[in-house]
Amino acid sequence: MKARPAYFPLSLRILHWLMAPLVIAMLLIGVGMVASVSPRHAALVAIHKPLGAVLLVLVLLRLTVRLSQRVPALPGEIPAWQQRLAHASHCLLYALLILQPLVGWAMQSAGGYPVVLFEGLQLPALLAPSVWLHGVLRGAHGVIAYLLMASILLHLAAALFHGLIRRDGVLASMTGGRLPAAAPASPPGEG
């Protein structure tokens, strides 16, 4: 079997660090705008829609790259069940990141709203208007937002645990930082 790389490919690292602050900003904007009636509401909505469209493009691009590239393995001493859990949590993150903008777009369409990204640019409707679907999707959009936030908090905690406590190179494989001396590392910046 071909050796897995020690670092994530540069393309995935760039996409990860580009999307991370945008996704967090998006979640704060989303929960903020639905809890506001001040002029901030309209200003946040005006960011939320085009940013959601950008994130949909980015996550689809990232999924394509992720599926076509080899990525680092977790250290062998991590128990198998933990490895499976880690893998599942990453699948969940991808699923939520793909689902959320699509649900938002579909929900707006079902509500009969034009999905205007900015002046002069409108997305086509993803669904025909339906109050039933609007209700379901509006509920789902909120649930996915909270699930996403919870997953990101777990992801952050696990990443920092690897980086600060275990110091096993898992965090470094995404930050590009120095790997622990004992880890079987291939040189950074490859491939």
Partner: peptide, 10 residues
Amino acid sequence: LAAAFGYAAG
């Protein structure tokens, strides 16, 4: 991060 989220949510 959780607090920032909670703050935005009110």
